[in-house]
Simulated assay, not measured.
Amino acid sequence: MEIKNIFCIGRNYKNHALELGNEVPDQPLVFSKPTSALASADGSVLSFPANRGDIHHELEIVLYIGNEVERGFTVEEIVTQMALGIDLTLRDIQSNLKKKGHPWFVAKGFRNAAIVTGFWDFPGVEQIKDVEFSLERDGETVQQGNIQSVIFSFQALLEYIYEEIGLSKGDIIYTGTPEGVGPITDGEEYTLKWGNEVKGRFTVSKRS
């Protein structure tokens, strides 16, 4: 599967924005990650820096644009597959960058900062509204949500990206995280679940 661009949405769940002391946005907050940040939740051990402060996990639904995008599209016309992903953040570095008014890219674009499970066929927005997605840390649920709690719908997000930046076949979109974000620690195993189905796993290795 070809992945061209990685777009991410910040603060798309109200309770997550509030838990970090951020304002609830009145329009989508879009940022990007490089494709070099991609990593697979295929049971691998993934390495992360141990000397750059806290690294927070943010569980998200990921959409894959599998068809050409033309004005007036619907989500179902352009999204062909979906996955679960984790947007990792160097939280201390991000906080310092925000205080200085600098871009977040260094805090969001490091190696293995865009974890993703395998993709599966996208069934449509209505079909996934009641499905809970969750993240377990060593068997304990630390994040859980569903898309009924989003501030901006998938349709609104994709239209915004299309109009403001551009959206193409091959792009993926991390659609925002529910509350419960927190730091990862060396040796922990994380499990990403769609309903009761395990979609991916990885183990943390923090290196100096």
Results as ranks from 00 to 15, higher is better:
N51L: 05
N51I: 03
R52H: 01
R52K: 09
G53K: 07
G53A: 02
D54Q: 11
I55S: 01
H56Y: 09
H56Q: 04
H57P: 11
H57C: 07
H57T: 00
E58M: 06
E60H: 03
I61A: 07
V62S: 05
V62G: 03
L63K: 07
L63N: 11
Y64N: 07
Y64L: 14
Y64S: 11
I65V: 07
N67E: 15
N67P: 01
N67Y: 11
N67S: 11
N67K: 15
E68T: 08
V69E: 09
V69R: 12
E70T: 11
R71N: 10
R71M: 12
F73W: 01
T74E: 13
T74C: 08
V75I: 09
V75T: 14
V75M: 02
E77A: 09
E77C: 02
V79C: 10
T80M: 10
Q81C: 07
Q81I: 03
Q81N: 12
M82A: 07
A83K: 04
A83G: 14
A83P: 15
L84N: 11
G85F: 04
I86L: 15
I86T: 09
D87Q: 10
D87K: 07
L88D: 10
L88K: 05
L90H: 03
L90K: 03
L90G: 00
R91T: 04
R91D: 02
R91G: 07
R91A: 05
D92I: 14
D92G: 13
I93A: 07
N96Y: 01
L97N: 13
L97D: 12
K98N: 12
K99I: 05
K99M: 11
K99D: 14
K100M: 12
H102A: 15
H102Y: 07
P103A: 13
W104G: 06
F105H: 10
V106F: 08
V106S: 06
A107E: 01
A107M: 04
A107P: 11
K108Q: 06
R111C: 06
N112D: 11
A114N: 08
A114V: 02
A114T: 02
